[in-house]
Design a protein around this nucleic acid. Structure first.
Length: 307
DNA sequence: ATCCAGGCTCCTG
DNA sequence: CAGGAGCATGGA
């Protein structure tokens, strides 16, 4: 068992993260307890279970990471690196807040209401791509179900103290599926093809995941949209959720446009051009703004439903 | 019932 | 080259 203690930059609202993981789409990959989150990562194909325990406050965050079953320090370190990336444990929000306060008072009020919310990311380009393809077009609940079913079908699991933990399926495992396997899980024929074909490219080394992460945003998007099934939106989601790039603006995204209509009090959904126009105020922080708008819209919808 | 979800491809005129 | 149908399903 390897352990480290981290002091993420304040503010960090872990209670929001816990709430989000408990309620939404993520229960296959994350196991929640009172103040801890456990997730299984594949490190060079070896399952490594990481447990994050929050031991601080929003303004003085502190977390303990434990690699429960790691067999050597190197393995533990790599699992910790995934964990730090996924939960944005090393990224300060303060510069984002400062930039928004200066340039966009409307948005600043909204952001303050959700102070301490950090981006929840995917481990890398591959995972983000599969999930973004799954998320194309369909509503969030259905997309979450498709993800859940894929993870269970692939069943790359690990037993620890009587509990079963599921890893996000490796490219090789997804590559070994047939389109028909996914059709049975309510994937459309197209979606099944896009997901499996992409996994096969990665598994065969025909799609250089590492090179993508070194490219500029536009260069990376250009590479990704060459693939069948990958449009601009999907490529942008990969950069945002997979690599955590701070300056991605999915200007065509329906959720972003709905959120802007609601929170800026517009009388209709803004066009792509209008989104880009308004986004000039957020230069450098487009991903963060988008993430906050998505999150705030989700919370608003949830409240409306409860009322 | 109908329309729309954090889209994309493919076919038509 | 713009425009629109079709995709699978579930919730409003």
């Amino acid at each position: 068992m390897y352990e480290i203690t981290l002091f993420p930059p304040a503010p960090y609202d872990f209670s929001h993260l816990f709430e989000r993981l408990r309620h939404s789409s993520n229960w296959v990959l994350y196991r929640m307890e009172n103040d801890s989150i456990t997730r299984l990562f594949l490190v060079d194909g070896h399952p490594v279970l990481v447990k994050l325990t929050s031991t601080g406050t929003v303004e003085q965050p502190q977390v303990k990471l434990a690699a429960c079953n790691a067999t050597n320090e190197q393995q533990a370190k790599r699992a910790f690196a995934y964990c730090r990336h996924v939960f944005s444990l090393d990224r300060p929000l303060a510069p984002f807040y400062a930039a928004i306060e200066q340039n966009d008072p409307v948005l600043f009020r909204l952001v303050q209401q959700h102070r301490g919310i950090h981006m929840l990311l995917e481990p890398g380009v591959y995972e983000a791509m599969i999930l973004s393809i799954i998320g194309q077009q369909v509503n969030m609940t259905f997309a979450a179900n498709l993800k859940h079913e894929l993870v269970k079908l692939c069943n790359q699991s690990f037993e620890w103290k009587g509990q079963t933990f599921y890893a996000f399926p490796s490219p090789e495992r997804v590559a070994s599926l047939s389109y028909e396997d996914l059709r049975k899980l309510k994937y459309s024929q197209r979606k099944a093809e896009y997901v499996i074909d992409f996994a096969r490219l990665v598994a065969d080394g025909r799609f250089p995941v590492d090179e993508i992460s070194r490219m500029s945003n536009e260069q990376a998007i250009e590479e990704m949209v060459k693939l069948r099934g990958i449009g601009r939106w999907t490529a942008e989601c990969v950069l945002l959720f997979g690599l955590g790039r701070p300056d991605i603006l999915p200007a065509l995204d329906i959720g972003l446009r709905n959120a802007m209509q609601l929170f800026y009090g517009l009388d209709r959904q803004p066009s792509e051009q209008e989104v880009r126009q308004m986004a000039t105020r957020w230069r450098g922080w487009e991903s963060y703004v988008t993430y906050y708008l998505w999150t705030a819209l989700g919370i608003a919808k949830q409240r409306k439903q409860e009322a």
